[in-house]
């Protein structure tokens, strides 16, 4: 009777369960895996060398470099800002907290195209800050700063959203314990706060990175799509596709997808390597 008490109650019959599992797997395959497979198949239609050649063109290389640069700047910045925002929201009570939480979600609810347009209106030559920026000889719109601002805006919520529930649930007790044991604020942050949220932080950073590399709408508006200068990989893909260069378009798309898959694989590898530690420290 003991074993029966431990196994969960199931009301579904075995065929039902099998059917459900197969159904979910089939859906996942058709909806998620098949399109991805098609991208790779199309990219390699004329052989690997054709795909590699199309990726080694000057404009293609520039797009790849720009995308990596934007992600390399935007992701660390948003990781730090997101961590600070999550800490403030989870650990302190202050007026305007609800407003701050809503604001963090703003990029999720505003269409990226609208966000891009807003940035153009704000920083463009006829915009609110445009005249001043022109006077300072700073180019924001149709240049790298604009791309960065758009990407920062779009990817802002990812890290904070992952961290807020984890930090709220963990509360302040462990941090207070560190303080009573004589730890300085920075030592406490390094040895207690950060390790406790490291998985949520990693997950947020990966999501943030995937979106930073893949963002199209906002970046398309603010970049002006200047080939070889302000085109990132997603924009380059669209341009190539519209020019009927489908092998080049799909080769670039495959590379972008591969970058995303790489980050996903990285996360799984880390989780697998630390499986023992995770099972020991979760649900304390």
């Amino acid at each position: 009777m003991h074993d029966a008490a431990l196994s969960p109650v199931r009301t579904e019959s075995r065929p039902w369960r099998t059917g459900l599992i197969i159904g979910v797997m089939a859906l996942t395959f058709v909806l998620l895996l098949a399109p991805l497979a098609v991208v790779f198949a199309e990219a390699l239609r004329n052989g690997l060398s054709a795909a590699v050649t199309s990726l080694s063109e000057r404009d293609a290389l520039s797009a790849i470099r720009l995308t990596l640069l934007v992600a390399a700047v935007a992701v660390p910045l948003n990781a730090v800002i997101g961590l600070a925002a999550a800490w403030a929201i989870a650990k302190f009570d202050f007026r305007g907290k609800a407003v701050l939480i809503t604001l963090i979600d703003l990029p999720f609810s505003v269409s990226p195209v609208v966000a891009g347009l807003a940035l153009v209106l704000l920083y463009g030559s006829h915009g609110l800050l445009g005249n001043w920026l022109v006077a300072q000889d700073v180019k924001v719109v149709f240049a790298l700063p604009g791309l960065l601002l758009a990407t920062l805006f779009i990817t802002f919520p990812f890290v904070a959203r992952e961290l807020i529930p984890v930090m709220t649930e963990q509360g302040r007790a462990e941090e207070e314990a560190a303080l009573t044991l004589g730890a300085s604020g920075w030592h406490m942050f390094r040895t207690v706060t950060l390790p406790n949220v490291r998985w949520a932080l990693l997950y947020g950073v990966l999501l943030c990175n995937a979106r930073a590399m893949g963002e199209f709408g906002a970046v398309a508006v603010i970049s002006g799509k200047i080939r070889g200068q302000t085109t990132t990989m997603p924009i380059m893909i669209e341009m190539l596709y519209n020019e009927y260069l489908s092998v080049a378009a799909f080769a670039m798309a495959a590379l972008l997808a591969a970058l995303a898959l790489l980050t996903l694989a990285l996360k799984s590898a880390l989780e697998w390597r630390h499986a023992d530690f995770l099972s020991a420290t979760r649900r304390h």
Binding site: E176, A178, L181, A183
Partner: peptide
């Protein structure tokens, strides 16, 4: 708080969940 040198035992103990017992005790 750091300079008061109090030993504080919290209601839910607030042990550092990502550290072993040894590391917890050695923390201070």
């Amino acid at each position: 708080v750091q300079q008061r040198r109090t030993g504080f035992v919290f209601q839910s103990y607030a042990l550092f969940r990502h550290m072993t017992v040894q590391e917890n005790i050695a923390y201070g």
